[in-house]
Design a protein around this nucleic acid. Structure first.
Lengths: 146, 146
DNA sequence: TTATGATCGTTAGCTTTGCTAACTATATAG
DNA sequence: CTATATAGTTAGCAAAGCTAACGATCATAA
């Protein structure tokens, strides 16, 4: 038999799932002029803060298959935001790093993309903001564990 | 100049944004055998609990353009989960309702899709679960306001 | 040392989901 | 009755996910 907390985590999960779907759809529309889609922004962020990184590791970090990441990296490279470099030790492996333009753009693009979200959070009460701040950490842990 | 809370909501927003991206990617992969993708599941949910509903209203509720919703509804209809019916008063308008199979499948599919998420939440401490439960409500409000 | 097999990345090709533009059909206003 | 506005669909494009198949490189074992 299920415990009290187990039973009640189903609606919580449903709400989080729904919120995630609608949040991303909304942010995509807010950011209509943005040069960086969510997958590209997310990948670039990993490269900027965690690079240089191999394509395989980047794909794993972003939880997508290598062919998907190949295409995202190629697009970012064409935009001049990252560059590939062959690994000297292992010729099969490719190291991906961010260019100066990539680092610059990441900060601007990320700020703009989540602007609407920040605005909404700022409209909350101080208690709610504090709650959400703590929850964001828990949520990150939850997702990492999946 | 920005207040203390305003400054600190930027990283919270970033964490929530990142968590949403990775959560949805992970759930999609968990649910590999699932007959219902996230957009279809989300739309069906609105129809089941809020239907009958016009295509335009459904598109607005799901924050997508009418052509996108036309296609999703057509797919759901082909799967026998919803059906269209012309509005008697306004011949341009179409009302969408769930079939019995649609209602049945929604519950099963939703449970399966978020199973991994529920599992992770259950692994949290009681305090964290309580925190997340409250945060889910706040988050729903935040997203609704965007 | 060379042959075998594993691993990394890419290419090719499919599906789904977004979009805009343009069209049809119906309703409403003048 | 005509003109315009609205609801939904169709057509066609791009991005992002996948699998399968392939080339190139590395590691290992005969």
């Amino acid at each position: 038999m299920l415990s009290e907390t187990q039973k009640s985590s189903q609606p919580t999960a449903e709400r989080l799932h729904s919120a995630a779907i609608h949040m991303l759809r909304k942010l995509r529309r807010e950011d209509e002029t943005g040069s960086l889609s969510a997958p590209r922004l997310s990948a670039l962020s990993v490269v900027v803060f965690g690079g240089p990184i191999t394509l395989g590791d980047l794909a794993a970090a972003e939880q997508v298959r290598p062919p998907t990441m190949t295409r995202i990296v190629s697009a970012l490279e064409q935009q001049g935001l990252v560059f590939r470099k062959q690994n000297a030790q292992d010729g099969r492996s490719v190291n991906i790093s961010a260019t100066a333009a990539g680092k610059r753009l990441l900060l601007k693009a990320r700020t703009r993309r989540i602007r609407a979200l920040v605005r909404q959070i700022n409209a909350l009460t101080a208690a709610e903001q504090s709650l959400l701040r703590k929850a964001a950490h828990v949520l990150a842990k939850v997702v990492a564990g999946m």
